[in-house]
């Protein structure tokens, strides 16, 4: 896999991430379709988004956008379960992870389209807050 192709795939995934669209969900399929093994793509996605999200988070914290009362009940179980399921992923066959991720993507995209179609008004009202 050439340096340039990997760099370009990273730019595509990162650009979507920077727009707050969940670039990680697109970087993984981009990498795997280019021939990177599933588990390596997952590891790459996690590792490469750390520096960027840390930088973005520092800006958000400065702007007072972090809601502390919601942060703790979300972040604690998230950290716990992500460790457990990362260990589980190490023992699962790559094929199963790929299929599971594909289903997750389909589910997410349908949920998004659905909320876009019915929530035009509601979404705009929420934006104004």
């Amino acid at each position: 896999m050439s340096f340039l192709i990997l760099l370009l795939l990273g730019v595509c995934g990162g650009a979507l991430g920077g727009m707050g669209m969940g670039g990680g969900t697109l970087l993984i399929p981009l990498l795997t379709l280019a021939g990177v093994p599933q588990k390596l793509a997952q590891a790459l996605n996690l590792l490469s988004f750390l520096p960027m999200s840390a930088a973005a988070l520092a800006v958000h914290a400065k702007n007072g956008l972090l809601k502390k009362d919601a942060l703790l009940p979300l972040a604690l179980p998230a950290a716990l379960f992500s460790a457990l399921f990362a260990l589980l992923a190490a023992f699962l066959p790559a094929r199963a992870l790929r299929t599971g991720f594909a289903v997750f993507l389909l589910f997410l995209s349908l949920a998004r389209i659905r909320s876009f179609l019915r929530g035009g008004e509601k979404g705009r009202a929420a934006q104004k807050k």
């Binding site: 969900t25 997952q42 379960f81 260990l87 992870l97 997750f104």
Partner: peptide
């Protein structure tokens, strides 16, 4: 999800 699929 984040642990299992490495993102999302």
């Amino acid at each position: 999800v984040n642990g299992l699929f490495g993102g999302g």
